[in-house]
Simulated scan of single mutants.
Amino acid sequence: MVSATPLLAVYAGKYVYDEVDGTRFLNHPQVRAAIEAAVPAEDVRDILYTRGFEPASGGDVNWGMMIAADGSVAAVCYGQFADKNAQEAAWYAEGEKAFSLAMMCPSEASEIEASFGDWSIGSILG
């Protein structure tokens, strides 16, 4: 028997590697479709899917995501910070790079609200 994928709202407050009904956030079909619609660069998408979270190292890759509660639209932040003098994170939405900021991607809802207050891509999960 195949179980239905959970609603995206159940992932709020969880880590991307936490499973809900056997499905991790980045493996959820609505999340994958939203990332593919938001991020045009295959190399960035591949890194998100394969290196979504590295608890041991943290690494030099930083990413974040805002997604509508129904999965219909998303904005994805991605940055590589190997060069400490050139730290920049790019935000992607609607299949293109929307803008870049000289800061790391937000990891908490409060950081998103402080940085993007009225940048609306729909009803955002907290």
Score class of each variant (00 low, 15 high):
1 M>E: 14
3 S>H: 13
4 A>Q: 13
4 A>T: 15
5 T>H: 11
5 T>D: 11
5 T>C: 10
5 T>Y: 10
6 P>T: 03
8 L>Y: 08
8 L>P: 05
9 A>S: 07
11 Y>I: 06
11 Y>V: 01
11 Y>Q: 04
14 K>C: 07
15 Y>E: 07
15 Y>S: 13
15 Y>T: 05
19 E>H: 11
24 R>Y: 05
24 R>P: 07
25 F>W: 01
25 F>R: 03
27 N>V: 06
28 H>S: 13
30 Q>Y: 09
31 V>P: 13
33 A>D: 11
36 E>H: 15
39 V>L: 05
41 A>H: 11
43 D>G: 08
43 D>P: 12
45 R>P: 08
45 R>H: 02
47 I>T: 09
49 Y>L: 15
49 Y>G: 03
50 T>C: 01
51 R>V: 07
51 R>W: 10
51 R>L: 06
56 A>G: 09
57 S>P: 01
59 G>R: 00
59 G>Y: 00
61 V>Q: 07
61 V>E: 10
62 N>C: 15
64 G>M: 01
64 G>Y: 03
64 G>W: 02
67 I>F: 04
67 I>A: 09
69 A>E: 15
69 A>R: 09
70 D>N: 14
71 G>Y: 04
72 S>F: 04
73 V>N: 15
74 A>P: 09
74 A>V: 02
75 A>Q: 12
76 V>I: 06
79 G>Q: 00
79 G>M: 00
79 G>W: 00
80 Q>L: 11
81 F>Q: 04
84 K>V: 09
85 N>W: 03
89 A>L: 03
90 A>M: 10
90 A>E: 05
91 W>I: 01
91 W>M: 01
92 Y>A: 00
95 G>I: 00
95 G>F: 02
96 E>Q: 15
96 E>A: 12
96 E>Y: 07
97 K>H: 05
97 K>W: 08
98 A>H: 12
98 A>R: 11
99 F>M: 04
99 F>Q: 09
99 F>W: 11
100 S>K: 09
100 S>Y: 02
101 L>H: 04
101 L>V: 05
101 L>D: 01
103 M>F: 03
104 M>E: 13
105 C>P: 09
106 P>E: 00
106 P>K: 03
107 S>Q: 15
109 A>E: 10
110 S>N: 13
110 S>Y: 12
113 E>D: 12
113 E>R: 13
113 E>F: 08
114 A>P: 05
114 A>E: 15
115 S>F: 02
121 I>N: 06
122 G>P: 08
124 I>D: 15
124 I>Q: 08
125 L>M: 13
125 L>Q: 06
125 L>E: 02
